[in-house]
């Protein structure tokens, strides 16, 4: 049994179903990547796991506990951290305040966690007094991830963290993601840059039209000629 599982998820935003019997899982210390063509329901699957849309069928388990009925806020308390794709920092607040807000639900040890985040992303310590809105795209993503880490989550969910950043910054972000996974956090990530993402993935989920098409280790998917041809551009 994986630590976090979205099982047989079926549902959508009120209208027609977008997800059809979709299953996604990730274990502690591992990186799971969800890839697929545009409109495959990748982000929707992510939102379903985080409780931002209600499922018609299926359930979400974290550490064997059924959390299907919980609100996103309640899931944060259960150890889930979520980094949205857009508007993922408080632009008018300083980097430090952003991180503090991430730790809003915690009473103790906030400074310690913040130090860990600064160790992970040294540039944030340099710019701790600057408003997050004035940072570059890559630095903002670091703030966003850092903010989510401040809750000390068991699972960190990233929705296209590398959208709109340069390839160099992307590589760096992925390095950090690997580092985070090594601390024992489960990482679930949706990515457009499928090749690079599968390279670092322990597990890869290829979604097509809201269904699981391929599920395997990242390396196996990369090696699969069918997957390569259809989704990774040869």
């Amino acid at each position: 049994m994986s630590y976090l599982i979205g099982e047989h998820m079926t549902g959508g935003y009120g209208g027609a179903d977008i997800l059809h019997d979709c299953t996604i899982a990730v274990d502690k210390g591992e990186i799971a990547v969800v890839v697929g063509p545009n409109g495959a329901g990748k982000s929707t699957a992510m939102k379903a796991i985080f409780g931002m849309l209600s499922l018609r069928e299926g359930r979400v388990l974290i550490g064997d506990e059924d959390i299907t009925g919980l609100t996103p806020q309640a899931r944060v308390l259960k150890g889930m951290g979520f980094v949205p794709q857009n508007n993922n920092v408080f632009t008018s607040m300083t980097v430090e305040e952003n991180l503090e807000m991430g730790a809003f639900i915690r009473e103790h040890g906030v400074a310690e966690t913040m130090q860990q985040v600064f160790e992970l992303f040294p540039v944030l310590e340099e710019k701790r007094r600057q408003p997050a809105g004035e940072l570059s795209g890559g630095q903002r993503q670091q703030v966003a991830i850092g903010r989510a880490l401040m809750t000390r989550p068991e699972v960190l969910m990233l929705d296209e963290p590398t959208a709109g950043v340069s390839p160099i910054v992307m590589d760096e972000l992925f390095d950090r993601v690997i580092e985070i996974a090594r601390t024992g956090i489960a990482i679930l990530m949706v990515e457009q840059n499928a090749k690079q993402a599968l390279n670092i993935a322990d597990t890869g989920f290829v979604l097509v039209q809201g269904r699981n098409r391929y599920t395997d280790t990242g390396a196996a998917l990369m090696a699969d000629p069918e997957v390569r041809a259809a989704f990774l551009g040869g």
Partner: peptide, 11 residues
């Protein structure tokens, strides 16, 4: 500043 993100942060 950002209502949705504030909710995600448990505010």
């Amino acid at each position: 500043d950002n209502e949705d993100l504030a909710l995600l942060s448990g505010i």
